[in-house]
Every structure is written in C-alpha cells, then in structure tokens.
Amino acid sequence: MSDLRSLYQEIILEHNKNPRNFRKMPEASRILEGYNPLCGDHYTLYLKIIDDTIADISFEGSGCAISKASASVMTTLLKGKTKTEAEKIFETFHSLVTGELKDVSFETLGKLGAFGGVSEFPARVKCASLAWHTMHNALDAKTDLVSTE
C-alpha cells in the first residue's frame, strides 16, 4: 500500500486526470516527438523559445499516468525558464527518479518531489523521464523522434 502510494502520489494522479498545457501549439518553434516503444507512450512536445527562454511549452499524446503527469508537471515548471535553468531542473529530476539524489528535502524539490517514489520502480523510470528527455533533445535542437528506449 505505502509503496504504491509513494509512486501514485496525489499530484501525479491529479496531473494525469487534468494534464496542464495539454494542447497543440501551432506557433511552436520546436516540435519533437517522444516515444517509448516498450509500452506505447507517445507524446508530442511543443516549445516556443524566444531569446533563449522557454516562452511557452505544451504537449499532447497518450501514455501511462506516470509519463503523462511527468510531462504535465514539467510544462508547469519550465514555462518562463531559460534553457540553462531548464537543463538544471532536468538534471535534478533525472537524479531524483534514478535514485541518485539522496537526502534532499522534498520541500526544496517542490512538485518534482512527487516523482521521488519512481526510483523504487525501475521499470517506470523510463515512463517518468520520457517527456524530459524529449525536452532535453528539443533544446539541443535535435529534430529526430526522441525515444527513451
């Protein structure tokens, strides 16, 4: 019970049900697909970058609760951030879900903290990271389909 609740925290369930910034963005400056062939998670990420800053970010697609909530939370955290700031948050997120980030209070992590339970479920790390890897590659201006497989 406690294990499952650590994975499926309220924030995750809520963002899964009502994903934020879940829309197409025709005026996006970068559009990238993220696909996990293993479980079929498939999202399109839209970024509008003005002067090195993420002026707008949105996504659409389908997948499991973890991948969708992660994408949703990511969009809320990155809007208005510079590319460097975004990469920094990505690094924190990555070390959090892979269990490399120890002894960090959840308060300093904010909403990211909800993904702290993912590291206990190795099979789900890829779900949580899909949108983030897509974002990372989009900032790198890679234009190919992004896959976390």
């Binding site: 499952l4 499926y8 479980c39 998670d41 389908s62 499991c64 609760a65 099979a123 779900c127």
Partner: peptide, 9 residues
C-alpha cells in the same frame, strides 16, 4: 487507466 499502470499495481 493505462495498462502500464495496471501492471505495476
């Protein structure tokens, strides 16, 4: 509910 979530639970 996505199958992957069902599988984990």
């Amino acid at each position: 509910v996505h199958p992957h979530d069902i599988g984990t639970i």
